[in-house]
């Protein structure tokens, strides 16, 4: 449940995973981390669908935010979900609406392949 201060990046990511510079000042990448024991592929797909639906609904009422992706680390039994959002509370609201609560939320720095290591302007 901790939010770790980290460099804020200005990225806009699409559902296919590509990222580009955004003009939306104040949008950052957030990662949620939750222990999920012995999840099946179908269960993680269900989490993905629920987060996608929750972020779509909350975006329609609270402005810019985007659910990006979910990654399940089977060996560590951890589920990592990524969002582009204005603050951690919006991410928490998405997680609660998807009924996937009690996540640790961390602001993240992300580079994608087409950025070639360029440090984004903060």
């Amino acid at each position: 449940m901790l939010e770790t201060p980290c460099q804020q990046v200005h990225l806009e990511s699409s559902m296919d995973g590509s990222s580009s510079r955004s003009s939306d000042v104040g949008i950052a990448i957030f990662m949620t981390d939750r222990d999920v024991a012995d999840a099946t592929d179908a269960q993680i797909a269900g989490v993905h669908r629920a987060l996608e639906a929750a972020s779509r609904r909350i975006a329609s009422s609270s402005g810019t935010l985007q659910y990006l992706r979910t990654v399940y680390l089977r060996s560590e039994q951890r589920c990592l979900c990524f969002f582009a959002a204005s603050d951690a509370e919006v991410v928490r609201a998405i997680s609660d609406t998807a009924q996937f609560p009690d996540v640790r939320i961390t602001r993240a720095l992300e580079f994608s392949a087409n950025q070639l290591g360029e440090v984004p302007a903060s």
Partner: peptide, 14 residues
């Protein structure tokens, strides 16, 4: 409303 919608969609899907 939002949580009910997400739950209904997910349960009906599975």
């Amino acid at each position: 409303l939002d949580a009910s919608a997400v739950l209904a969609e997910t349960v009906l899907h599975s």
